[in-house]
Each structure stands twice: as structure tokens, then as C-alpha cells.
Design a protein around this nucleic acid. Structure first.
Length: 311
DNA sequence: AAGAACTACAACCGCCGAATT
DNA sequence: CAATTCGGCGGTTGTAGTTCT
């Protein structure tokens, strides 16, 4: 009922879909499209996604462009091969935060929410089920009924977390405000006010793009756009391979970026929040004696003292 | 060897909240 | 303050690849 109300409401409002269905391409991205998107972002920075299709001539909707960038093309992304630590992180965080993949992803800076979500759905869910079958997993705090070992309920905990995050956000923006040109926190929307971190990463992208363009691309002669002819899925495989090489080299470079740089290069990763949450998380995790991994580490990014101070 | 079943993951869809007009 | 736009999020789907029968 709420949903139908909502739809009706939207109908009245006349809100347009993010993309009109006609003339909008769907399905896997081709290397050409990736290049176009990356070079556009390289020039203008991420953000203002609405303008991307028109400015680039890509026959994709803005959402699709954003998704492609955040989940695949963005520098610093690691894909596949989740480490044991990452796995544990995800499991704990999922137990703690629920299916808030974006929040969980903020603790794993090199992973996208989509990736984590997929990994959870395909691997971890089953794994946990298995484990739960074997030995009451709940004693580790993974099930909702695990609150016995935790003094406060998850709901309470989350409320606390939220208020604390809010405080931290405020504190951070206060702390940062003197340095910031007014109103350009989200550099994506102000294309000329790019933080240096992003510039450096885009320079890397540019270099890589050059190299990539120079190397013989195995793009089918007919290119994709003609929808028919060659098998589009095979083309996609090609695209995956070429893009993968391209991307892994990007991520290699960007891995050496400073946390600040990686923070600024991606507005979709609320690392600030992540850091603030981390202090609680650490407490929670360690308090609960989740000491299964001697070498278990939460994450390698350091806690920002300014933020921790507020707690 | 062939087909069915399963797995992995990129991409899409719809909803929501924040920002803007 | 209401209307509208936009970006982000989580759930879901589609399909290529792999394993099983």
C-alpha cells in the first residue's frame, strides 16, 4: 500500500525516469565505452552523472555510467579473491550492520559494495549456513539471537552509532571547513575544484589510457554498437579482459595513494564515516572476544584522532 | 559427449533521502 | 513549503562459465 502510494505520488509529480528507455543501451559495457567514460571523468571528475551521457555521447543512462565507474572503472578497486581477513570482516560487519553493503564496503576501501554484496550472496551466506549447521555460530555473534554475549541490542547499538556518526560528520566538516573553498565539498559537482588526490589518480588513468590505446586492442572490427552481427557476449569477454588489465594496473598505482587521496577521489566511499564507525566496531569486535584470528586485523587505515576525540 | 544444474558477477531496477528550484 | 531532480543504496536478474550427472 505504501508502495503503490509512492508510485502514484511519483506519477503525479511527473518525475522522469533516469533515462528514457528509447535509445539507451543496456547490457555489458564495451572497452570503447569504458574509455569514453574514463576519459570524461578524467577530465571532469566523477559526479554530475546526469550530464555524462549527453556530454560523452554515450548511449547509457546516468545511473549506468555512475555504476560502471564506481563498481568497475574507479581506481583502487580490487576484485575477486577475497582474503580470509576480508571475509571475516564482511561476516562480522554483516552481522553488525545488516545488509548495508555500502557501509560495509567503507571498511574495505578497495572493495565495492556490489562486490561485497555479490560475495556475500554467493559465498558467505552458504558458508555461514554450513558453519551454523556445524556448530552454533551464534556464539560468535553472527546470528541475531547472539545478543546474549553483547550487552546492548543491535537496534540500540545502531542508534548509538548513528548519532555518533552524525556527531563525527559535523566535527569533521568543522575541522575541514577553513581549508575548503565554500561549497565544494563534493568536487564532482564543481569540476574545477578537484582535490589534488583525484588529480593524481586521473593522471594515472590518463597514462594508462594512453598505453592501453596504443596497445592493439582486440576490439572486433565491427565494434559493438551495431548490436547485431558478432556475439555481444564474446565482445564482452574481450572487454573484460582488456579492461581488467587496464584496471589492475590502475589499482596498483592507486593503492599507493594516500588515504586522503583515496578519500577525495571517490565521493561514494564515506571513509570518514567508516573511520568513525571503526572505533566502535573495534571495541565491539574486540570486546566480544572474536579472537579467532590471531592476526585478525580490521583494516589498515588509521583512526583519525580528530574524530576519535569526539567519542 | 551432452545436457542439466550450479556458480559467479556485472548490470539493472525501484526506492529513498538530500539537495535544489 | 512544495515540487522536482539527482545520486546512492539494496535487491534482483541475466547470462557466461563451470561442474556434475
Amino acid at each position: 500500500m505504501k508502495e503503490t502510494d509512492c508510485r502514484f505520488h511519483k506519477l503525479i509529480m511527473g518525475r522522469q525516469p533516469c533515462c528514457d528507455k528509447v535509445g539507451v543501451k543496456k547490457g555489458p559495457w564495451t572497452p570503447e565505452e569504458d574509455i569514453i567514460l574514463v576519459s570524461y571523468i578524467q577530465e571532469h571528475g566523477p559526479g554530475n552523472w546526469r550530464a555524462v551521457p549527453t556530454k560523452t555521447g554515450l548511449l547509457r543512462c546516468s545511473k549506468s555510467c555512475r555504476l560502471r565507474w564506481t563498481n568497475y572503472l574507479r581506481p583502487g578497486i580490487k576484485r575477486g579473491n577475497f582474503t580470509e581477513n576480508e571475509e571475516k570482516m564482511i561476516i562480522h560487519l554483516q552481522a553488525l550492520l545488516g545488509n548495508r553493503w555500502a557501509a560495509i564496503a567503507s571498511y574495505l576501501p578497495q572493495r565495492t559494495d556490489n562486490d561485497i554484496k555479490n560475495y556475500w550472496n554467493t559465498h558467505l551466506k552458504k558458508k555461514l549456513k554450513k558453519l551454523q549447521g556445524n556448530e552454533g555460530f551464534s556464539r560468535h555473534g553472527f546470528s541475531s539471537s547472539s545478543s546474549s554475549s553483547c550487552k546492548i541490542s543491535r537496534g540500540q547499538w545502531e542508534r548509538k552509532l548513528q548519532t555518533d556518526i552524525h556527531m563525527a560528520k559535523k566535527a569533521l566538516s568543522d575541522a575541514l571547513s577553513p581549508e575548503k573553498p565554500s561549497g565544494s565539498v563534493e568536487f564532482g559537482h564543481t569540476s574545477h575544484a578537484k582535490p589534488s588526490g583525484y588529480v593524481s589518480s586521473t593522471e594515472n588513468i590518463a597514462k594508462l589510457l594512453k598505453g592501453w590505446m596504443r596497445s592493439p586492442m582486440k576490439i572486433p572490427d565491427s565494434a559493438d554498437s551495431s548490436e547485431g552481427g558478432t556475439d555481444p557476449m564474446k565482445q564482452d569477454k574481450n572487454s573484460k579482459e582488456t579492461a581488467e588489465g587496464f584496471e589492475s594496473s590502475i589499482s596498483d598505482i592507486s593503492q599507493s595513494m594516500s588515504p586522503e587521496a583515496s578519500l577525495s577521489q571517490d565521493e561514494s566511499k564515506p571513509n570518514v564515516d567508516a573511520r568513525t564507525q571503526l572505533s566502535f566496531l573495534e571495541e565491539w569486535l574486540f570486546d566480544k572476544g572474536l579472537n579467532q584470528g590471531k592476526e585478525y586485523q580490521l583494516c589498515d587505515f588509521a583512526l583519525d584522532e580528530n574524530i576519535v576525540h569526539y567519542f
